[in-house]
Write a protein that binds this DNA or RNA. Structure first.
Lengths: 139, 139
DNA sequence: CCTTGACTTAGAGTGAACTCCATGTAGTAT
DNA sequence: ATACTACATGGAGTTCACTCTAAGTCAAGG
């Protein structure tokens, strides 16, 4: 499979795919005799994993470390497992932050929707979710 | 409240706080007569919102736009509401990506844990979650 | 064989979001 | 008054993750 096809399948640019390979986010991709990249199913699996983990905010550095361990062979299985557990904690924390922000947004959206209906803002007091009412005209 | 205290409360550096104010992620902060920042409760609310939304991956540009609308007054309430709805969609998508990555990780972690117990890797076939077994020694 | 277009590389450039630095001022303790 | 520390500013520098450019190579059509 050509680099173009891989790109359109995963929504990544060719530059990014080559970059991932160059820095070690994915292992070396299979080539034609002429030196053109020809992705195998296994290569695709790596690309999918990289794309998936990256889009969740996992830093490139961790993926590089994972591939490095993978290349070293079965002796690194425990290490790889530990790395993935660390990554999971990161993403869980990430998701928690999304949830926190979502709660804040939902509240603000509700207040604004009510304001649009009733014609006036009505933040119910000091719940730590305010700072959306119009600025006081102090000067 | 001094900038130092605000920093330790929200885990942000003073440079970042000043940067946020400078580019408009938060409105101008109250000052002492001498020109030193002295955060009011309202200022703190803005900082909290900015920190919360930023840590969920909301781009600075959106926050700046939100503050800009806020400063314009009540006429922008519908716009602000629309902006927040757009932001919510973004964060929801973000969270979905976290969930996707987590599922992939959980699977890999399970396989590795089993490998650590049994002494050998056992990816159950072509489920699109592989690419973690040791490289085939082809050369 | 020649053109054309997609591929290759190495290396420079970009954008977002900070982060650091140099220089100067505010406020407090001695 | 002096020293010291925390704060101020404008502007330069850094980091991450790409993204682009230039110059060259591969492969298919005419």
């Amino acid at each position: 499979m050509t680099i173009k096809e891989v790109c359109s399948r995963f929504g990544i640019s060719p530059d990014t795919l080559r970059y991932y390979e160059r820095v070690g986010v994915i292992p070396e991709v299979h080539r034609t005799p002429g030196g053109i990249r020809d992705y195998t199913e296994e290569d695709l699996g790596w690309v999918e994993t990289a794309a998936c983990f990256r889009s969740a905010g996992m830093p490139i550095e961790l993926l590089i470390e994972y591939v490095r361990l993978y290349k070293e062979g079965d002796g690194t299985i425990a290490e790889r497992c530990a790395l993935l557990r660390k990554a999971r904690e990161r993403i869980l924390a990430e998701r928690q932050k999304c949830d926190d922000a979502l709660r804040k947004m939902e509240y603000k959206i509700r207040v604004y929707e009510k304001a649009v209906r009733t014609g006036r803002l009505d933040w119910d007091g000091d719940d730590g979710c305010c700072n959306c009412s119009s600025p006081k005209q102090e000067e």
